[in-house]
C-alpha cells in the first residue's frame, strides 16, 4: 500500500505505464521485423562502417607514430607539431568532414581523409608522451650495457612506450567509429545512414538499431584495444 502511494506520488499511473509497455513491445517487434527483413542491409552497413573506420585508423597510425618518433628525436619539432595537431583535434569532427567536401567531393575518400586527421592527434600525443616517459636511468643503463642508439630505440624505448601508444590508438579508434557516423552525411555509407534515415523518417526503431550498433561497436573497439594495451604492459616493470 505504501509503495503504491509512493508510486502515485511519483506520477505513476496504470494506464500510462500500460501504454508505455505496449510501446516497448511494439518497438521490439519493429526491431525484430527489421532484422528479419533487412538484416543483409544491416550487415553491409556494419561492414561499411568497420571498413571506413579501419581504413582511417591504419593511415593515422602509419603517420602519427613516425611523426611522434621524429618529434622526440628532434625536440625542436615537438612544439609546432603538437600545437598544430592539438588545434586540429578540438575542431568539431563535423566541420572537418564538411571542409573536405569542396576539396575532395563526396564519398568514402574525403570521409577517410577527415577521419585520419581526427585520429592523428591522440596517437601522436601518446607516442610522444610514451617515448619521453621512459625513465632516464633505463636509457643510461642501456647505453652503459653497450647498446647502440638504434638498439636503445628499438629494444628499450618503443617496447616501453607501446602501452601508451596503444592507449592513444584506442582513443583514436573510439573517436573514429563515433565520427564515422557523421561521415554518412557526405555519402560515405556506414551505420550513420541508418541514423540519418531514422531522423528523416522519424523511425525510432531505425534510430535504436543504428545508435545501438555504433555504441556497441565503439565499446567493442575500446575493449579490444584495451586488451592489446594490457598485453603490452607485461614489458613494463615499473
Amino acid at each position: 500500500m505504501r509503495n503504491l502511494v509512493i508510486l502515485r506520488l511519483c506520477g505513476y499511473n496504470k494506464t500510462v505505464s500500460d501504454s508505455m509497455w505496449k510501446g516497448c513491445v511494439a518497438m521490439y517487434q519493429q526491431i525484430a521485423e527489421y532484422f528479419q527483413t533487412s538484416s543483409e542491409r544491416w550487415f553491409s552497413m556494419l561492414a561499411g562502417h568497420i571498413g571506413l573506420s579501419a581504413g582511417a585508423l591504419l593511415p593515422a597510425i602509419v603517420i602519427a607514430v613516425p611523426a611522434g618518433f621524429l618529434c622526440v628525436r628532434y625536440a625542436r619539432l615537438n612544439r609546432p607539431v603538437t600545437a598544430l595537431f592539438g588545434t586540429l583535434r578540438i575542431i568539431p569532427s563535423l566541420a572537418v568532414l564538411l571542409l573536405m567536401l569542396p576539396v575532395l567531393g563526396t564519398g568514402a575518400l574525403p570521409a577517410m581523409a577527415a577521419l585520419v586527421l581526427l585520429a592523428i592527434p591522440p596517437i601522436l600525443a601518446n607516442t610522444i608522451a610514451g617515448l619521453n616517459g621512459v625513465p632516464d636511468f633505463m636509457l643510461e643503463t642501456a647505453v652503459s650495457l653497450g647498446m647502440t642508439q638504434e638498439q636503445v630505440w628499438w629494444k628499450i624505448r618503443f617496447p616501453l612506450a607501446l602501452p601508451l601508444i596503444f592507449a592513444g590508438v584506442k582513443t583514436a579508434a573510439v573517436e573514429i567509429i563515433a565520427s564515422a557516423t557523421l561521415a554518412a552525411r557526405i555519402g560515405a555509407g556506414g551505420l550513420g545512414d541508418l541514423i540519418f534515415t531514422g531522423i528523416g523518417l522519424f523511425r525510432t526503431d531505425l534510430l535504436l538499431i543504428g545508435g545501438g550498433s555504433v555504441a556497441v561497436l565503439s565499446l567493442l573497439a575500446g575493449l579490444l584495444f584495451g586488451l592489446l594495451e594490457k598485453m603490452c604492459i607485461r614489458y613494463k616493470t615499473i
Binding site: 563515433a178 525510432t204 534510430l207 535504436l208 555504433v214 565503439s218 565499446l219
Partner: peptide, 17 residues
C-alpha cells in the same frame, strides 16, 4: 566512461523518442 564512448550523433538520435 561507457556512456562517453557512445557516439554523439547516436546519443542525440537515441534520446529523440
Amino acid at each position: 566512461a561507457m556512456i562517453y564512448s557512445v557516439p554523439s550523433l547516436a546519443m542525440f538520435a537515441l534520446l529523440i523518442p
